[in-house]
Computed example of a mutant assay.
Amino acid sequence: MTNGEFAGGTWRKSSYSGGGNDCVEVALLADRIGVRDSKNPGAGALSVSPSGWRGFLRVLDRD
């Protein structure tokens, strides 16, 4: 997906990123979640469903 398809959302970095550009950014919309590389935001974004994103976060929370 292109970043323009997430124009209605705001790209955000995790507060755990330490302010560097070596993390991902996330844009939340009602029907999808965008994920992109903060080092190269113009390269495009992945799009996942809200349920897919919740599943991903559950896996991360297991650590």
Rank of each mutant, 00 (worst) to 15 (best):
62 R>C: 09
4 G>V: 01
38 S>A: 14
11 W>P: 09
7 A>S: 14
14 S>F: 05
1 M>Y: 06
59 V>T: 15
17 S>E: 03
26 V>W: 05
32 R>D: 12
40 N>R: 14
49 S>D: 10
61 D>P: 00
22 D>P: 00
2 T>I: 13
12 R>D: 01
1 M>V: 10
33 I>V: 15
18 G>I: 07
24 V>M: 02
45 A>P: 00
35 V>A: 01
24 V>C: 01
45 A>G: 04
5 E>D: 14
1 M>P: 11
42 G>R: 04
4 G>C: 01
63 D>K: 13
4 G>Q: 13
42 G>E: 09
55 G>W: 03
10 T>N: 10
51 S>H: 08
56 F>Q: 04
8 G>N: 13
59 V>M: 10
44 G>M: 03
15 S>Y: 04
12 R>M: 11
47 S>R: 12
33 I>H: 00
26 V>P: 09
61 D>Q: 11
51 S>E: 12
13 K>P: 03
2 T>F: 12
47 S>V: 05
59 V>G: 14
2 T>D: 15
1 M>Q: 08
11 W>R: 09
25 E>C: 07
53 W>T: 03
28 L>D: 02
33 I>E: 03
11 W>L: 09
60 L>F: 06
57 L>Y: 00
43 A>M: 03
6 F>C: 10
11 W>S: 11
8 G>S: 14
20 G>T: 15
5 E>L: 11
18 G>L: 08
3 N>H: 13
44 G>D: 04
24 V>I: 15
33 I>P: 05
29 L>Y: 06
48 V>M: 08
18 G>Y: 09
2 T>Y: 14
53 W>N: 05
34 G>H: 06
25 E>K: 06
42 G>C: 00
22 D>R: 13
35 V>L: 11
58 R>F: 10
3 N>C: 13
4 G>R: 06
58 R>N: 13
20 G>V: 05
35 V>K: 03
58 R>Y: 08
2 T>C: 09
32 R>A: 14
36 R>L: 01
41 P>R: 07
62 R>T: 15
23 C>D: 03
26 V>Y: 02
51 S>P: 01
47 S>Y: 05
40 N>I: 07
26 V>L: 14
15 S>N: 10
28 L>G: 01
14 S>T: 06
7 A>L: 05
36 R>N: 01
45 A>C: 08
63 D>F: 15
22 D>S: 15
44 G>E: 02
13 K>N: 09
